[in-house]
């Protein structure tokens, strides 16, 4: 995805308190132009409040939030439409509020796969259709920045896959996407960078690869002291750790044949050598130290 180092979104010590409760605590985050930024956190971590402040729905108690584009599309905490209007008329209404022509409505209905149901009343829509209509409203006018708060909520596996494809497509088209989600596999798959928030505090902001750390090789071999000597020669003193059932070497997957050959050449029996890579989910749970109360992971198609 084409990212350039010019922030589209920048917050500086953004803070929101409700009485004594600190919902968001001095959050400073940046979203670069053209990237897909994943905003992660357990329920109640402060994700939606941060996004609300960013979009001007909620006033910050302290700090600043700025957006450096003219046009923003957003879906915040579920769609909100008039139940008695059809999907198409709801979008026509939204288009009028923003001064867009009615032709935008058909384009976005097509984009979110609701063209065939546009004439149906919103109150008759399934949860997934309502969510898609909300995304459609956010896409009107081809905004340079799209903020999506849990856009896959209520979608079936096929719908989730479509939404992922849509987000990737938006980023390919040069649009910046700020995506809040609790579906970590989804974020891992489509996001360039992530920010992790917990208890209102931004714990980390980095690329997905940096956050997951490098890959490693797990080796089970005997005798282990001899294997350790060979491993330290190959991966360096700091690149080897003992695990409960073997050794962990900070080496990429394609080093496995070479490591195997070196161990065998040294007269060591190799029982198992596997490539391991931490998932975003594992890193996330480590960072949030079990405080996370994520809903059960939804199946991916």
């Amino acid at each position: 995805m084409n990212t350039t180092h010019s922030p589209v979104v920048a917050t500086e010590a953004l803070t929101k308190t409700y009485g004594d409760r600190v919902a968001v605590d001095r959050v400073s985050m940046t979203v670069q132009r053209g990237e897909v930024y994943g905003f992660l956190g357990p329920n109640g971590a402060g994700k939606t409040t941060t996004l609300r402040m960013l979009l001007g729905l909620v006033r910050p108690t302290a700090g600043t939030a700025s957006i450096d584009v003219d046009r923003v599309g957003a879906l915040i905490e579920g769609p909100g439409f008039h139940p008695y209007l059809s999907g198409r008329d709801n979008l026509r209404t939204m288009a009028r509020y923003r001064g867009f022509p009615d032709s935008e409505v058909d384009r976005v209905l097509e984009r979110v796969d609701l063209a065939g149901r546009g004439a149906d009343k919103y109150k008759g829509y399934s949860l997934g259709m309502k969510q898609r209509l909300g995304v459609g409203a956010a896409l009107m006018g081809d905004p340079a920045l799209i903020v999506l708060d849990e856009p896959t909520n209520g979608l079936d596996p096929a719908g989730m896959a479509d939404m992922r494809a849509l987000v990737v497509d938006l980023a390919r088209g040069g649009q910046t996407v700020l995506l809040s989600s609790h579906l970590l596999a989804e974020v891992q798959e489509i996001c360039d960078r992530v920010g992790v928030i917990d208890h209102g505090t931004l714990l980390l902001e980095s690329t997905v690869a940096e956050m997951r750390g490098g890959s490693s090789l797990h080796v089970r071999a005997t005798p282990e002291p001899a294997a350790l000597t060979v491993a330290m020669r190959l991966a360096g003193d700091d690149g080897v750790r003992r695990t409960h059932d073997g050794l962990s070497l900070d080496l990429p997957a394609d080093a496995a044949p070479h490591v195997t050959r070196e161990l065998v050449a040294a007269g060591i029996d190799v029982h198992e050598i596997t490539h391991t890579e931490r998932s975003l989910e594992e890193v996330f749970f480590e960072m949030t130290a079990g405080a996370a109360t994520l809903p059960e992971k939804e199946p991916l198609s």
Binding site: E77, G80, F81, V147
Partner: peptide
């Protein structure tokens, strides 16, 4: 109740004008 004001304002509509 329906969340339409939230949708309208999150899409950048000006509050006084709205």
């Amino acid at each position: 109740g329906w969340g339409t004001w939230k949708t309208i304002f999150s899409l950048g509509a000006q509050r006084t004008g709205a």
